[in-house]
Amino acid sequence: MKDNGESFVTEDGRTIGEVMLDLRDITLRFGGVEAIKSISFDIREGEIRAIIGPNGAGKSSMLNVISGFYIPQDGEVWFHGKKRAPLKPYQVARQGIARTFQNIALFEGMTVLDNIMTGRLNYTKSGLLAQAIWKGKAEREETENREKVERVIDFLEIQAIRKTPVGRLPYGLKKRVELARALAAEPKLLLLDEPMAGMNVEEKEDMSRFILDVNDEFGTTIALIEHDMGVVMDLSDRVVVMDYGKKIGDGTPDEVRNNQAVIDAYLGVAHED
């Protein structure tokens, strides 16, 4: 695999674009605990990038750095070739980065439709007065946003639960609604934090298909954290492996699978004392 910053073709024959997000020497500390120790990796346009590692490796912290929840003490985040100043999460969202959460973070008191419509908030430009009288620009925007949202609803096959309050939905559907909300924002980069946690095989297959379709049809770049190795190896173009806040492997699924450090981290290794 070449790594010269330009586009290249993977083993599966998929074309991967230029570097979209570049993380350089990211270090994140909580008091005395170093959650992330000087990690660098990149995410390229159009790829599915997996981040794996044992519990507590710092994967979720990494996503939180990307989405602006945590400001790293050291290191730089480059997005589309520009160095990113420390941003608030809502500013990151405006740059075209959307995400889902490990524990579902939906708006329980709102309907599925309203939840997904929140994904369009960044595209709403009409002011308070226009919205108060619900005429002109406000009404037009509402309809446009609704059309976009309906497309996502069709895509994820959740038409039947459109008007249901989210609190009444079963777990698997909630995960899907959360994905829908992120997709409604039409992100360039989609971060998925354990999209298949707690799902049965069938639901995992559905979700995997949706992830591949999103990547394929919308051309969305995806970074995902997942523990199911079968899923990770099948879905992703490239994999980063983390352990105890350090990067111990980076490459195609095959390269990672045969990496001794990765095998040690997952299977354990006999220490010589």
Partner: peptide, 8 residues
């Protein structure tokens, strides 16, 4: 938190 991440 989720509101902020979606752009609120």
């Amino acid at each position: 938190i989720a509101a902020e991440i979606i752009g609120v």
